[in-house]
């Protein structure tokens, strides 16, 4: 049950609350560049979601089994020539950037071939933006987020593949939501009488800024959901044991309120 709640929270957080584009401001290039009409924006969102998922799969696997200190493959290979305690301390996380870029560019290349074969009109409308996914920082950001959650001190808290994939998929979904909303607004903006100094890039950036502010309304939803979904067990125990001691209960309540916020 806890696991499902955790997955749910990661999904909501990646898609809406900590939206890659509108909260962290990564992946702005396609967000501005391919948001001219809704169809293309949706196609771009799907491509990014697909690439981000493959990249997350590869990067989680490599991070868990090779890069972090005490990773199985690294420890085993190093253990052949080094004493065990030294072997399990080898930290290859310095390789993370190069490995992730490697994985991302390969999966983009793969997607490009796939789209070209099976969706020629989509391939044509993407133009230069499909290869640009390679340098889309949203994807590298997802990989690095996964790494920071895998390479934690306590192995119990390290993310498993399910959590990593959920983050990636819903990060992609969040990107799609943001870019489709943006494309819808820009389609309407084409019909508006925009003052000359604001035409073009200026009004686009202002729109993006206002959109980001609107998404700030989601802030705190994850904390609220967490509190709602995790039944506060301690509270019940405390209430049962100290039901006759009103002063202690009040103190507990006060502490909980302070801690919760």
């Amino acid at each position: 049950m806890n696991y499902i709640i955790d997955i749910f929270l990661i999904a909501i957080s990646a898609a809406l609350i900590n939206n890659f584009v509108l909260y962290y401001f990564v992946g702005i290039c396609p967000f501005i560049g391919v948001s001219r009409n809704v169809d293309m924006a949706f196609g771009m969102g799907c491509a990014v979601t697909f690439v981000i998922t493959i990249a997350a799969l590869i990067s989680w696997t490599i991070t868990t089994f090779v890069l972090i200190p005490g990773a199985p493959v690294t420890s085993f290979l190093a253990g052949l020539v080094l004493p065990a305690e030294q072997a399990s301390g080898i930290d290859l996380t310095i390789l993370s950037y190069i490995v992730y870029i490697f994985a991302i560019s390969s999966s983009v290349q793969f997607v490009e071939m796939y789209v070209r074969k099976f969706f020629p009109p989509l391939y044509k409308s993407f133009g230069v933006f499909l290869p640009l996914i390679t340098t889309n920082c949203a994807i590298l950001f997802a990989c690095l987020t996964i790494m920071s959650n895998v390479a934690v001190d306590n192995p119990e808290e390290a993310w498993d593949l399910g959590r990593a994939l959920i983050l990636a998929i819903f990060g992609g979904v969040g990107f799609t939501i943001a870019i489709v909303i943006m494309a819808g607004i820009r389609e309407e903006l084409d019909l508006c009488d925009i003052p000359k100094p604001l035409q073009g890039a200026a009004i686009t950036l202002i729109t993006a800024g206002i959109l980001a502010m609107a998404f700030m309304g989601f802030t705190g939803v994850d904390t609220g959901l967490k509190n709602a979904l995790n039944p506060p067990d301690e509270q019940q125990i405390v209430q049962q044991t100290n039901s006759d001691d009103s002063i202690k209960l009040a103190e507990q309540g006060k502490n909980r309120t302070a801690g919760g916020f």
Binding site: T74, V81, A87, L92, I94, V99
Partner: peptide, 11 residues
Amino acid sequence: LVTIALAAGTL
């Protein structure tokens, strides 16, 4: 040396 070899091997 082992670290370098492993890094190169990974890539």
